[in-house]
Design a protein around this nucleic acid. Structure first.
Lengths: 168, 168
DNA sequence: CACTATTTTCAATTTATATTGAAAGTTTTG
DNA sequence: CAAAACTTTCAATATAAATTGAAAATAGTG
């Protein structure tokens, strides 16, 4: 397999994977392109490589900057901005988890609490539904704390701990 | 807040949350409806409650059965099938993780390996790209093993372990 | 086995989401 | 400070994904 073909395969794979997890295809593909590139790329280069519009390229590059998955740099004597990806994938995983927690999980827990608090304690069906919501809330909160641990722990300590746990 | 309103809020919340994670809105809403219900519901009841078509209701109920998040039962003297949700949310989380691993994560690891294996070792750029793919593969594989641990560990042992880890 | 109830399928359609591209905005430079 | 280089915005459009609903298939009943 030729390297350019391998890169294209990877970009397409990462794009599909993204869509399965609620991340838009272009954003995942721009990310994959920058991960594949040894050098920082301009908006135009991203547009050309992926055959996407300027607006799309710009928007997704900006989003990737917000997610802290991509950085900018400028080249002396050149007005354009150049973008390159964070390549430490453990960092990447941590940052994605951190953002999704903040944007999605924590608001969800918030909403579940509100639903729970709005319920009376009179009827059996209210009590029953309150229990269900509590069960969901507990599960989500647990996964949320689990991800906190993931974020705090450094790679080796974390997996070392698991190994130890699995052996005993 | 009236309980019916609380349930509707929950169904809508769970539906939105689903879409953010690549699960279609109807499926998440059918799931939420069954989680909210004390009794098993027929396809018609699901259609009526959520205002969705028969095809949609049927398809999503079948999917939820495949995910092991919902069960069927039959009522003597009634031909219809009735559906009810698994309410142990820790079980629910485990089953979702298990399915997504099987359907999405493991094939991804497979594909990444193929890309890696197809690369030569001649040029620097090939070596560089191989490194990137390896980094991604390692990260994904690590999260995959982490979720294995999650699946194996029972609730209390697992979180007990984290507590201990965080304190020391 | 004919009839009825129920479930499943899938082409057509609708809806939600992503993308485009041209115009407006911003920054840089001579 | 005007012109050029570049970036951002956003209404219009295109595309992908979900949904419908009627027809076909299957299962249950007398």
């Amino acid at each position: 397999m030729e390297i350019q073909e391998a890169k294209r395969t990877f970009i397409s794979l990462w794009g599909n994977f993204g869509t399965q997890w609620g991340i838009n295809r272009s954003m995942a593909q721009v990310h994959a392109l920058l991960l594949s590139s040894e050098v920082a790329l301009s908006t135009e280069e991203v547009m050309d490589e992926l055959k996407i519009s300027r607006g799309n390229a710009n928007m997704n590059l900006r989003d990737l900057l917000n997610w802290n998955l991509v950085y900018k740099k400028s080249v002396p004597g050149d007005r354009k901005e150049y973008f390159f990806a964070e390549k430490d994938m453990w960092e990447v995983a941590k940052r994605i988890v951190k953002e999704r927690k903040r944007r999605e999980i924590e608001p969800l827990i918030q909403h579940l609490n509100e639903i729970r608090n709005g319920l009376g304690k009179t009827s059996d069906s209210e009590k029953e539904f309150a229990k269900t919501i509590e069960g969901i809330n507990q599960m989500v909160s647990r996964l949320n704390s689990l991800s906190d641990t993931l974020l705090k722990a450094d790679e080796h300590a974390f997996f070392g701990m698991f190994m130890k746990y699995l052996k005993k």
